[in-house]
Amino acid sequence: MLNILRMQLYWMRRSLKTWLIIILCVVFSAVMTYMTYALTDMLKDEENRKQFDAAISETEDVGLSIGVQMDPTQIEEFNDETAYKYESLVSNVFNSGIIELMTVIFAVTVAVAEFKNGYVKNLVCAMKKRRYLPVTKAIAVSLFVIVMVIASALSVIATAMIISAVKDGGFAESGSVSALLKVIGMQSILHIAVSLFCMTVMTVTKSTVISVIFGVCSATNVIGSALSVVDSLIERFFSKEVVLESYIVSTQIMNCSADMDKDFVVKAVIIAVCFAAVAIAGSVLAVGKRDIK
């Protein structure tokens, strides 16, 4: 299995799409950090803040969440003397769902690459067990998702440092290293889980379109909105109050803040592990049972 894993890592390392998605993660993180700065600067004006509050409430009504995520109270507290902590900025970028979208696209494109081009026919005799393929693929995808999360976080910090230097300080400053590592670690786990899940959707459906739509719906919280409809139906017909949305990985990605508490960490890790386990089991079953065309 180690040999197959080496092969997967070799391919992903050599693949242009891997590096393209990592570069996109870095660029989007930098752009979103700059947008946070621009928005913060703009909202120092009272009139602009009112318009912003109105726009935020409209977006929430639609249920879409991709873009710069800012807590209005955070803006209110913000003045010339205060500055963002790096971990808050990093957290904001991940909460936006843009990195989730990138990792999902990566997972979908690499999920069944060797099945689509037929390279698997060269490997099937070389593998003792066919299940090694999805398992090693999941490990390799996880490693590259960690690279993407770290690269995105570093991009946010670097951009914040540059903006602060150019604007003569005031925008961002270093906070708690442990809080920063906690955000990166937690987001890595959650992004791995959602990537593996989308990888399995791709493996099972063999449809790039369905998998990408699923990934986009997940990253833009459309799935969360759909689940809230289910919640209301359950409440109406069974008189039970449930919040299914809070049990999906994307919701955890959106809610994972720099000051997350222990309860959040435990719940998010359990949800991520469950999603990842179901995803790997699904992939193993699909690859193991199917004939190779």
Binding site: N3, I4, R6, M7, Y10, W11, R14, S15, L16, A113, E114, N117, G118, Y119, V120, K121, N122, L123, C125, A126, M127, K128
Partner: peptide
């Protein structure tokens, strides 16, 4: 693993060189 096979059209990674394709199988 003692069988080498070319079944139907050859399965290749199109954006890689011939040596890369061989290296992948060697790693496997």
């Amino acid at each position: 693993s003692r069988i080498g096979a070319l079944i139907e059209a050859p399965g290749l990674f199109a954006n890689m060189t011939a040596a890369d394709n061989l290296n992948m199988k060697m790693l496997a």
